[in-house]
Amino acid sequence: MKPTEGGGALGLFDEARVVGVVLKKELVLYLRYPVWVLFDALMPLLWVLSLVIYGRALVGSPYSENLARLANTGDYVSFTIVGMIVSSFAYSTLWGMSYALRGEQWSGTLESTFLAPCSRFSILLGKAFSSMLTTSLWVFLQISLVSLVFGLNVKFLNLPFAMLFFLVALPSFIGIGFSLAGVVLDFKEHSAFVNFLSSLLGLLLPISYPLSVLPPVLRYFSYLLPPTYAIEGMRSLLIMDSGLNEVMGLAVPLIFFDVFWLSAGIMIFAREERRVLKKGTLGYY
C-alpha cells in the first residue's frame, strides 16, 4: 500500500495489522456504551415492524397480489426484510465512515491518529470493518428473531451465494465511505449532510417496494446507486431462488461501481486531506 503524506512505508501485512488493531479499538469503544449497543440491536426491528404492519393494513394478509405481479414474489414481509438488511449495511458504511474521523475530531485524537506511520486508508478500513461487523451481528440477531416471529421465507441454501454477491458490492460501499470521510474532514459538520443522504437513499433504494413503482426520474437516480443492485441481487438469490448466473446482469454494473467508487473515494479523500493539512484545520472542531 502506497504511503501517504506523514505516513510511513509499511508492507501490506503491517497495514492489515493496522486494520485489525483499529477494528479492535473501535469495537472496545463501541462496547463501552451498552445503551447504544442495545439500541442498535433492537431498533431496526421496530423500523421493519412499522413497514410490515403498514403492509398488513394495506393488504390484510402477508401476501400481496400486486407485488407478486411486479416483483415475482407476493411475500412482502421477506421482500422488505431482505431490503432492510442490505440497506442497513449501506447506511452503516455511510454513518460509520463519515462519523469515524469526525469522532476523532471530537475527542481531539485526529492529529495523533494521522501521525501514525501507516496509511490513512488502513485506519478508515478498520473503522468501516468494525461498523460492518457490528451490523452483521445485529442483522444475524434480527433475522433469527424475525424468522421466529414472522416466519421469514428465505432460501438459506443460497446464503453463501448471497454473501458472495454482497462481497462484490462491498468495495463500492467502502469507496463511497472514503469520499464521505474526505468531505467531512474538510467541511466538519456531517450530520445534516449524512441525514440528507440517508433520507435520499431511503426514498431511492428499493427497500420496501420494487423500482417499477418509482417515477421514471427517480428510477434513473436509483440505478446510479450501488446498493440498488446489491438489494435486487440478494433478493433474487434469497427470495426468488435465482442462481448465480441469473444475477450476473446485476453483478456487472456493481463491478463497474466498485472500480469507479474506490478510485473516486481514494482521490477525494487524498485531495481533501491535502487541503485540510495545507489550511492547518485538521484538528479543528
Partner: peptide
C-alpha cells in the same frame, strides 16, 4: 420519509385506495 410509504402502498395495492 413519507414518500416511501406512498410508494410501498402503490406496490402492494396498485393504486391509492386499499380495500383492507
Amino acid at each position: 420519509w413519507l414518500a416511501p410509504f406512498v410508494f410501498q402502498g402503490h406496490a402492494l395495492v396498485g393504486g391509492r385506495l386499499s380495500e383492507s
